[in-house]
Design a protein around this nucleic acid. Sequence first.
DNA 1: GATGAATGAGGATTCATTCAT
DNA 2: GATGAATGAATCCTCATTCAT
Lengths: 177, 177, 177, 177
Amino acid sequence: MPKVSEEHLTNRRRQILDAAAGCFARNGFHRTSMQEIVKESGLSAGLIYRYFPGKEDMILAIVEEWHTTRSAGLGTASDPLDAYLGLLRAIGGPDAARQRNLGMQAWAETVREPRIRALARQGVDEQLEAFGNAAPEALIRVLVAIYQGLLLQASWDDSLDVEAFVAAVGELVRRRR
Amino acid sequence: MPKVSEEHLTNRRRQILDAAAGCFARNGFHRTSMQEIVKESGLSAGLIYRYFPGKEDMILAIVEEWHTTRSAGLGTASDPLDAYLGLLRAIGGPDAARQRNLGMQAWAETVREPRIRALARQGVDEQLEAFGNAAPEALIRVLVAIYQGLLLQASWDDSLDVEAFVAAVGELVRRRR
Amino acid sequence: MPKVSEEHLTNRRRQILDAAAGCFARNGFHRTSMQEIVKESGLSAGLIYRYFPGKEDMILAIVEEWHTTRSAGLGTASDPLDAYLGLLRAIGGPDAARQRNLGMQAWAETVREPRIRALARQGVDEQLEAFGNAAPEALIRVLVAIYQGLLLQASWDDSLDVEAFVAAVGELVRRRR
Amino acid sequence: MPKVSEEHLTNRRRQILDAAAGCFARNGFHRTSMQEIVKESGLSAGLIYRYFPGKEDMILAIVEEWHTTRSAGLGTASDPLDAYLGLLRAIGGPDAARQRNLGMQAWAETVREPRIRALARQGVDEQLEAFGNAAPEALIRVLVAIYQGLLLQASWDDSLDVEAFVAAVGELVRRRR
DNA sequence: GATGAATGAGGATTCATTCAT
DNA sequence: GATGAATGAATCCTCATTCAT
């Protein structure tokens, strides 16, 4: 009975999304052909279309996941500032290259796809809410902006000194108190 | 002896780049077809290809110009901080939507096109040099990051309070002294 | 010893053909995917392929059945003309929409599939034989043509007055005697 | 200046429609791939899409033309019955194979494409109007039906005796007066 | 110089069919 | 027997680019 377990379905979906994320991070959404994803996933074209109605939907799923990952577990930390600085370190680190690339792709899509723009905006809004008590909106926005800018700069410059960057941010913010 | 004046050539180039920038800002690099640029420019496909060897080159030219515009006349100001805050206001303002869209497109291209990545990196490096005397590198990077992040957030949220944002930045930085 | 009764097999076949006929009448042979038939039949793809080697064969079976139904019990009637006029009424009636649609699909297939062409031709030839004694071939062909044309026209025009049509035919033919 | 004459455009369109009609008459609308039409026309895929937005539109154009051709110059004849019998001879003749095939294809499409159904219905209605004075609607419908049925039967049986068919029709109708 | 008709490789997607379970 | 997940060739269509005029 090829009716397959729930887990199998989830794994397949993962397999596809992973392949897609890899391709997208390497070549961007629009320079990645479905054929490449097919090859990278090791599955067939037809099967992929059983999981995603179209390329656009795969992009959306990838972006959704990206935002979900990003917004995880901030605000709940005992020392929010430390948690935030940790996030900076993470996004600036060498392991985050793929995440950075996906992020930049996602941002570019906000220009023409309302649903992706909504996700991006919502990503910021969630931070505003999470930290709403600790600081005024404008300040949180600045912190988010710093995160975003670091993502970009770290992507462009492998030799960027993330620690120094984080330290500078820490100083700037701590002094404020 | 050129049959057409230098000026004519420059104007034509402008005309093409303007059309392209308009399309790109609206739909992104990859959702814009050459045919759309042809139509928007009012010129013919053949002519456009006399000015740019291909679409890729047009993208490059657009991105180049974007970075040139951006890096203009900072660092030379009498009060660098004021000048910087002015830049924030400018990029956050409602007139800058097109510039923001182009910027986000350009950033996405850094993923797969080394020349565009080089331009992006160079854009940051220029700021590092321009302000090299006034502050440590890490701090300048943070300021640049704030600029970049504001660009994104202003693009996603029309109701973002740019003034409050700028004020928060001003406070953060001034306190430092 | 078959594990499943002959009757079961026949019922299954019926189930499949009914589903297929429904889809085909609605969307035509070529706009109907096997997947739709699978869904409409409530069976599985694999099972359907145990009953029919391929889509083409299902089409053939449907067309065969269509012709069989059509040629039933003419010529044997006590008053052939009345029987014929009854057939006209039947094919023109509102209940016959599905049959009409299938007929038109079948006719289109005669263009490229010799076996279906053969069935169509045979359908006419059977009438020629059945009425062979009552009238010359050419006249029978005309009567068949009228049937065919009515099928088309009734399909295109819900408000067609079938009774008037049949009356006109009756007059035309009766007068002849 | 490759801005091309009106005549050129018309010829190109003809060239495409002729190629398409040839393919369609041979293999049916849905067994004909665009690639076949491309090859048969001697043009390129891209060019064909400058003339027709899609395959569906080409089918529609072909069907439109088919109906236009068919409805030409009846009703205006001095002796309508003779003109009609001439039409029967024409559609039954060996030169009309392509027209017959296209007709059958068009009829099959009436099932799923309202615009094609509308054309078919309109084709009949035009005859009703053209002969409106000469005979009651039902009778004209019968004559049209005979035409349609002859088209089918002639398509299926090369040896069909068109003359005898036409003679039988003539007798049937003349006797009526 | 300037035009835009023409090209054709490449892209996303569908769908008849198979086969491991 | 029965299932439906999986396949991949084939389809329609787009679009960057060229070149005859």
